[in-house]
Simulated assay, not measured.
Amino acid sequence: MLEAAGLTSAEETVYRLLVTMSTASADEIAEHTELTPGETERVLAALIAKGLASGTERAPRTFAATPPDVALLPQLQRKSDALDQARAEVTGLLETYRRTRRRSDPDQLIEVITGAEALRQHLRQIQDSTRHEMLWFCKAQYVAMPSGSNRAEYDALARGVRYRVLYEQAFFDDPGAVANVTDGVRAGEIARAVPHLPLRLAVSDRAIAICPLVPGGPSGSSEEPTTALVRDSSLLEALIALFERYWEDAVPLHVGASGAVSADEPARGQVLPALDRQLLSLLVAGVADKAIASQLGLSRRTVQRRIQAMMALAGATTRMQLAWQAARRGWM
């Protein structure tokens, strides 16, 4: 048990015995441990050298254990720190190794997956390993996972993973789709809708993505999907940028008390106060908050508070989304 602290089996046996006794002679230790006198002397000498025991100088010589918190814990902490440093070094070396392999081996960048069952398995594995965020394009007519069957999403949401999911309008025509979206939003999914999506896509922690190479037919057809597993590369960055671009233009979805899914449609008849319209115009023009506050005679905190209020009114999570929604709603 104490091998990690550098003790042999015999040394651990003798040290544990000394811990249970205030002092003991070599003969007493030998009698309790069934070691020979010579072996006992060698083990005691090793324990003293390692700072785990001490012995009297006068005969009859006796031995006592050094307290474990003094003898063992600092040593174990030093080993733990060394292991942490080694682990960090190995992680860095692994990343360097992967970058080197990616330059020379395309298989390190893109892995081809064939068939719906293999696709389902990879989607489950990726979601199970996600720690921070999943990005998802949901198109109509599922290929691998029918509505409501992606239980890995609910497990991930329960452990704090953020899900941002984009649905194309035709998706809601699939059987069970509305109930699936309702359950997802209630579990914590952040959902939006767009008229059309260009492809199916899932991205885990911005580190790995799954997207189709050959779409395949809907479930039940004879055409099997051929899918790419894309790792850290310019292609992955492009897929993430594609998701974010569609996300900015999408309409947020909400679930009402009745369980109905509704969208935040732009209210063009809504009129902002003149001060907010002026503030918004300056914001869209790229003027900094401090300069806006000075020009409008407001405090910087007031400017930020009014911007937050407009973002909430527009259902926007970023200032870029606020500008886009403001243009759609005719606020400027």
Rank of each mutant, 00 (worst) to 15 (best):
L93E: 10
F172G: 03
P252D: 04
A285G: 05
R277F: 02
A327I: 00
R78T: 02
S147W: 07
A140R: 07
F243S: 03
P60C: 04
I307F: 01
A267V: 09
S221L: 08
L18I: 09
V165C: 10
P273V: 05
A49I: 08
E244Q: 10
L109G: 03
R277Y: 01
D249Y: 13
D81C: 03
L280M: 05
W331H: 02
G184C: 09
F63N: 00
T317L: 06
R78P: 00
T226N: 05
L298K: 01
G188M: 06
D128H: 15
E95G: 03
V251W: 07
E3C: 10
Q169D: 05
V284T: 05
G297E: 08
L17C: 07
G92V: 01
A88M: 04
D69K: 12
V178G: 01
D107Q: 13
I190W: 03
A207S: 12
M332Y: 08
P74M: 00
S219K: 10
L283T: 03
P106L: 11
L197W: 00
L235C: 05
A314N: 03
V161I: 11
I240E: 06
R328Q: 15
H196P: 08
L73H: 12
V214I: 14
L123S: 12
S22F: 05
R87I: 12
R16F: 12
W324S: 06
V19G: 06
L272F: 02
A293C: 05
G256K: 11
M21H: 08
D107Y: 09
T66A: 09
D155E: 15
L109A: 08
V251K: 03
L199A: 12
A309M: 00
T96K: 14
T91D: 12
Q121R: 15
Q308G: 05
S234W: 12
G6P: 01
V165L: 08
A274N: 11
A288G: 09
A170E: 09
P60R: 05
L242N: 09
A291G: 03
G176D: 06
R231I: 01
A86F: 08
D183K: 11
P195A: 13
Q270C: 10
Y154F: 15
L229P: 00
L298S: 01
A327S: 10
R87C: 09
R131A: 15
